[in-house]
């Protein structure tokens, strides 16, 4: 199987790896780039644990081939905090205990950040629909919605 050389930008850094064309972007991030924050819950686009941004668009990295990332921009959970400073969403998830096992959390944080960039003041319903592709087996979702609302309020300067 011939491997393909891929050059891409991940969280602002230029990254190169050799990908088997069958490998997903999720596999490549985890196994070749060493970024294991994005998780595989299903591998079939159902759970959202692998959520990343590809050229700014929220996607499931398990439904993108690694070779498709050539020349593009990828953002993962590892790029969310700035230096040692957690993103408001990350802080609010901890404050509200919006996670238990944490397996869904990276994907939900990446997805929620994309929402708040588009809509700084979403309703609970808008958050629930936006995150409908992010499954969580632990929290029952309520704390997640509250954490996103609280982070949104802080980011609007209202909290």
């Amino acid at each position: 199987m011939s491997r393909i050389h891929v050059t891409t930008t991940v969280n602002g850094d230029t990254v190169e790896f050799l990908a088997d064309p069958r490998e997903t972007l999720l596999d490549c991030l985890r196994d070749h780039v060493g970024l294991t924050g994005s998780k595989e819950g299903c591998g079939t686009g159902d759970c959202g644990a692998c959520s990343v941004r590809l050229d700014g668009t929220l996607v499931c990295s398990c439904l993108v081939l690694g070779v498709e990332a050539q020349g593009r921009t990828v953002e993962t959970i590892e790029g969310m905090a700035t230096g040692g400073e957690l993103h408001p969403l990350q802080r609010k998830f901890i404050e509200h205990a919006a996670l238990q096992c944490g397996f869904c959390t990276p994907g939900i944080l990446v997805a929620a950040k994309a929402l708040l960039e588009k809509n700084a003041n979403p309703t609970d319903t808008e958050i629930r629909y936006w995150l409908a592709g992010n499954l969580c087996r632990c929290t029952g979702y309520d704390k997640i919605i509250r954490a996103v609302q609280d982070a949104a309020a802080e980011m609007r300067g209202a909290a």
């Binding site: 686009g45 959202g48 668009t57 929220l58 996607v59 499931c60 995150l131 592709g133």
Partner: peptide, 9 residues
């Protein structure tokens, strides 16, 4: 069709 993530693709 599908979730926000699926809509991206």
């Amino acid at each position: 069709v599908g979730s926000t993530q699926v809509q991206g693709r």
